[in-house]
Design a protein around this nucleic acid. Structure first.
Length: 716
RNA sequence: GGGCGAUUAGCUCAGUUGGUAGAGCGCUUCAUUUACACUGAAGAUGUCGGGGGUUCGAGCCCUCCAUCGCCCACCA
């Protein structure tokens, strides 16, 4: 027996060495798997890793997905599949640019006013440095992914194919250039998609003003300068005397104006006075009304959130400062009817900086979602895509059934350029300049436009070898929080470009929260760095803590005492090994088992069968717990204790020989089934068992259908 | 406003098709080097949120209610 078993298990001196051995073996690449492991049909099994944002360290959520995906990959590899797990990194356009802007801010610099090319080069250097740190962190977590296939979302081939998709969609009329209301973040100076904003209910004073013969309500007096349309429901009898198109003069904020009556069914007669004025440039609903009636649009608020000259004396004032002053002025003019301070309404904010989103009208590229969503729902209906947990399917449908068109233009430099050109109001999609006088779009794609095509990019759509063998992939394992951002888009793109859903199973994990089950955030200062935990307790312990009892879709409170418990478990396993190796040095694996030992052998075989079913059904949290209990409570507490008695009775040579064979057999099997969960310690022990060959990484999962090993050890 | 989920031991959570309530941590007592003190043995702790129903039998199925959480949402 190796002397190392005389000391407690030390992950620190083990993990790097083991990982290097695995990586150097080349077996993370399924093309290199030994024939004897790959079952006859050599079926592929493929997982695409959600590419971490290459803009910082890995967080606890990454540790969870690495644990889960590595577990699935190792399990399938051991079962004889050509298991492929493709790693990657995301340039994460907007997110990274925000991170970098904060860095610039600290240095007293700003992206505004910087040469775009220079800024791009700086962010690129920053991202590439982070990317390599991140990759090593993924290695430290034990990920058995195929690094030779790693992709980055800004790899030239990815950029080209993502642009090709846009061009194809343009030709298929699935993207269009539209002047429409967009979510504008005045701090970040870019538009955002609807899901990049958060809606927060806030208490905002609701003002009612006299507006000619009417009374109108608003929470945004600062937009009212341009309001020259008064809108009411066509069947509202209170206003029957006014006809659509009637005009009238009134005294307004900065003097007399002429207003026009508009009748539109979108107005709720029961809300307020049933009359409102509209600001088409700064409200989505108003925009729609104005478009229906072909009304004028006028910008009131500039891109930085300051009032334009139309505001007269309020010009250049920030809207937040102007609001109260405008109300005061209207009040002084006797136009303020009432103020309701209890009023609550929903305000949109930037999901990154929490700034108030200013609706602005802007020319942008939009993806027509309805036809894509329809295909996605069809695929789910047909059972081509299964969600785990199941109820996520309802959430998915709910969103898909009335999804809005997707704004994919971003006014940031850190991203994939949109291959579009403009001339005289005409737009064309092309990677090269269509001719003289054409000006290229300076915007970049929403990051999710490229990551939405990730299963295609990583398998080298459209004509790569992997695309043929590994697409569609098997499982998409990712966070529940990005089901709309990412999962939905991947399904849409996959179906659109290939006619096939990019995966048959979506496994959604919950958030990893702190010990108090509070969401981790930098501002709260409760962020747990997974690498510190692996240093302290070992990667295997962290992985078990993330998997046991963590049901899909449920958030997890990450507690150090739980991780510590699995560190103790690792040591327990270490000492079980020590006991077995110490007591079985002269084992003869061919001896027949006693009836008792045969029963114990069968018991483990039954357990393996059971946990194999759990794994197939994605009850990973249960499988892990069952193995844990078998090892600690059954094997260590009972079988080993029982063995001490047998070994003490030296005259019972047959029983002793049988027990020795049994213990070795049990040890090999528990290492095997525990390997996907705790890869490092199981491999380390495997390497120290005299009769094992090669790596546990590529050792077969125990047979469960026919208990083949049992027949060779039939009772005497 | 709409949707989804949760409510089980002090804490964090499991409980796979309905069949005598489980784990980890914590707590109490004992053991002091026996493979392991990163240990062992023994133990305490739950009207499984509440009401009603189905069933021989409900933590699990149905229904209503309460509380908490999350997501979606263009009533100014």
């Amino acid at each position: 027996m190796d002397d190392k078993f005389l000391k407690p298990y030390d992950p620190a001196i083990t993990e790097n060495r083991i990982y290097r051995m695995w990586e150097e073996s080349g077996f993370f690449n399924p093309d290199n798997l030994p024939d004897e492991l790959v079952s006859e049909n050599g079926k592929p099994y493929t997982i695409v890793m959600p590419p971490p944002n290459a803009n910082g360290d890995l967080h606890a959520g990454h540790a969870l997905f690495v644990s889960l995906q590595d577990l699935l990959t190792r399990f399938k590899r051991m079962q004889g599949y050509r298991a492929l797990w493709i790693p990657g990194a995301d340039h994460a356009g907007f997110e990274t640019q925000v991170v970098y802007e904060k860095k610039l801010e600290k240095e007293g610099r700003s992206r505004f006013g910087m040469d775009p090319k220079e800024l791009y080069e700086e962010i690129l250097a920053f991202t590439l440095a982070n990317k390599s740190t991140m990759e090593n962190q993924v290695r430290a977590l034990g990920a058995s992914c195929d690094w030779s296939r790693e992709k980055f979302t800004l790899d030239p081939d990815v950029v080209e194919r993502v642009q090709d998709t846009f061009i194809k969609m343009f030709n298929d009329e699935l993207v269009y250039r539209g002047k429409r209301t967009v979510n504008w973040c005045p701090k970040h100076q870019t538009s955002l998609s609807d899901i990049e904003t958060t809606s927060v209910e806030e208490q905002t004073p609701f003002y009612t003003f006299k507006y000619g013969p009417f009374e109108i309500g608003t929470v945004r007096p600062e937009t009212k300068f341009g309001d020259k349309y008064v809108v009411m429901h066509p069947e509202d009898e209170r206003y029957a005397q006014y006809a659509h198109g009637d005009t009238f003069d009134l005294e307004w904020i900065n003097g007399p104006i002429t207003a026009t009556v508009i009748k539109d069914t979108s107005v709720d007669p029961d809300f307020g006075t049933g009359v409102m004025t509209i600001t088409p440039w700064h409200s989505g609903i108003d925009f729609e009304i104005a478009k229906r009636h072909n009304l004028d649009f006028e910008q009131i608020i500039d891109w930085r959130g300051k009032l334009l000259p139309i505001a007269g004396e309020f010009t250049e004032m920030k809207i937040t400062d102007a609001r109260q002053k405008i109300v005061e002025k209207l009040e002084a003019k006797g136009l303020l009817v009432s103020t309701n301070t209890d009023y609550k309404n929903v305000v949109k904010r930037c999901y990154k900086c929490n700034s108030m989103i200013e609706p602005q009208v802007k020319d942008q590229w939009f993806v027509k979602m309805a036809p894509l969503a329809e295909k996605a729902i069809e695929a789910v209906n047909a059972g081509d895509i299964r969600f785990i947990p199941e109820h996520e399917e309802k959430i998915f449908r709910h969103w898909m059934e009335d999804t809005l068109d997707w704004n994919i233009s971003r006014q940031i430099i850190w991203g994939i350029p949109i291959p579009a050109w403009f001339k005289d109001g005409e737009a064309r999609a092309s990677r090269v300049c269509p001719g003289e006088g054409w000006v290229q779009d300076i915007d970049t794609f929403d990051t999710w436009f490229s990551s939405g095509q990730w299963p295609l990019m990583t398998t080298r759509y459209p004509d790569g070898k992997d695309f043929e063998t590994h697409y569609p992939t098997d499982v998409m394992e990712t966070g529940r929080d990005i089901i709309f951002f990412w999962v939905a888009r991947m399904i849409c793109f996959g179906l659109y470009l290939t006619g096939k859903a990019p995966f048959h199973t979506v496994y959604l994990h919950g958030l990893v929260n702190d010990a108090q089950n509070k969401k981790m955030s930098k501002s709260k200062g409760n962020v747990i760095n997974p690498l510190e935990l692996t240093d302290k307790y070992g990667t295997d312990a962290l992985r078990m803590a993330l998997i046991v009892g963590n049901t899909p879709g449920t958030d997890l409170a990450l507690r150090e005492d739980k991780i510590k418990g699995y560190k103790n478990f690792a040591n327990k396993l270490w000492n079980i090994t020590r006991f077995i190796l110490e007591n079985t040095e002269d084992v003869d694996s061919g001896v027949p088992l006693t009836a008792d030992d045969y029963a114990m052998r069968s018991e483990l075989t039954a357990l393996i069968s059971d946990i194999t079913k759990d794994m197939d059904a994605y009850r990973l949290y249960l499988a892990a717990e069952k193995i844990y209990h078998y090892i600690w409570d059954r094997l260590a507490s009972e079988i080993l204790e029982d063995s001490k008695k047998i070994f003490a009775n030296e005259s019972e040579t047959e029983a002793i020989a049988s027990r020795k064979a049994l213990l070795r057999s049990l040890l090999r099997d528990i290492l095997t089934i525990l390997h996907p969960f705790m890869p490092f310690i199981t491999e380390e022990i495997w390497q120290s068992i005299p009769e094992t060959q090669g790596m546990l990484l590529v050792s077969p999962w125990p047979q469960v259908s026919v208990a083949a090993s049992d027949t060779t050890h039939a009772p005497s």
